[in-house]
């Protein structure tokens, strides 16, 4: 029984971790392509979720059509972001790009508010809910169905992304752009194409994250704050590594659940809220580039 409970805790942690990973992957994509921590990634997830619910409620679209339409909206958004913001900041300091994403986060948030309203929305695209009967009946293990579905979708997404970015010329172009804008231009890489591609993919990943979190706890403002939970995940995994984002997410998901359940009683609980950040701090001291990040080389 004791063992079973531990297993349940770990599984539940793993599945939460998958959610963290999903958000973190969005960050990694944009960081790889522009060397910028995209503060707006959480808001992108919120915006995608709001748009999806809005399209379903307002226009009565079936879920699959609404999802396709939302993907279209996210791609259009990527195009607009390049046109209105990124294009004018080529060759600027990274901190300036970071500030631009900060501004973008607030604009998007306000924009989503104006169009779709600010109340908590229920998202139901027909994903299975409740306990997974098979595991409960057979092994006495309680696992949320939704979380299993989330894990499967996240895995599929990660495989597709990994192949897309590691095996194609886009992957190499991406690393080039992240390293040096000017040099990338000189070898014939179109910054525009790369940025629109990456922000579109980040938007679609945000949509997946938004749908998963939204199905679990509704689409609400707090969704944009998961960006903050992704930060320790990135520090653990390394800002440039997709596998790192996954492993980092899983470690933090499991770590905080296990810590909450087994250490919580001794320190008065609420470990879940700060455990991730403490782990990140420890990592910063001993392995600042993260588990999978590229070593930072600086010639003096």
């Amino acid at each position: 029984m004791e063992m079973l409970f531990f297993l349940e805790t770990v599984i539940s942690g793993l599945l939460t971790g998958v959610m963290y990973s999903l958000v973190a992957i969005g960050f990694v994509l944009i960081f790889k392509a522009s060397g910028v921590f995209n503060f707006a990634q959480g808001v992108l997830a919120l915006f995608a979720g709001l748009t999806l619910v809005g399209l379903m409620e307002t226009f009565g679209l079936p879920p699959w059509l609404a999802i396709i339409a939302t993907i279209g909206v996210m791609i259009a958004l990527a195009w607009l972001i390049e046109l209105l913001i990124l294009r004018h900041l080529v060759n600027q300091e990274q901190i300036i790009l970071f500030m631009a994403t900060l501004g973008l986060a607030y604009i998007l948030e306000g924009f989503g508010d104006i169009i779709w309203g600010s109340d908590v929305k229920v998202l139901d695209i027909g994903l299975p809910q409740g306990a997974s009967d098979f595991l409960l009946d057979g092994y006495g293990l309680y696992v949320e169905r939704l979380e299993v579905v989330a894990a499967v979708i996240a895995t599929a997404l990660v495989i597709v992304l990994a192949i897309f970015f590691q095996k194609t010329r886009i992957g190499r172009a991406l690393r080039a752009v992240a390293d040096d804008h000017q040099a990338a231009l000189s070898i014939g890489i179109s910054l525009r194409t790369i940025w629109i591609t990456v922000w579109s993919v980040a938007g679609i990943v945000a949509l997946v994250a938004g749908v998963m979190w939204g199905s679990k706890s509704g689409i609400q403002f707090s969704l944009s704050l998961i960006a903050l939970k992704a930060l320790p995940v990135l520090i653990l995994g390394g800002f440039t590594s997709i596998p790192g984002a996954i492993v980092g997410g899983l470690i933090i998901g499991v770590g905080e659940k296990v810590a909450e359940v087994y250490l919580g009683p001794f320190v008065g609980g609420a470990i879940e809220n700060w455990f991730a950040y403490m782990l990140a701090l420890v990592f910063l001291m001993f392995r600042p580039q993260g588990l999978f990040g590229e070593k930072i080389i600086e010639r003096v």
Partner: peptide, 23 residues
């Protein structure tokens, strides 16, 4: 645009080296 120039066969190096340092 620079990437168009590159497509047409113009390559260059820079005064302050512009390499992809992590690669």
């Amino acid at each position: 645009r620079p990437h168009q120039a590159a497509k047409q066969g113009i390559a260059r190096t820079f005064q302050n080296i512009a390499l992809f340092k992590g690669m």
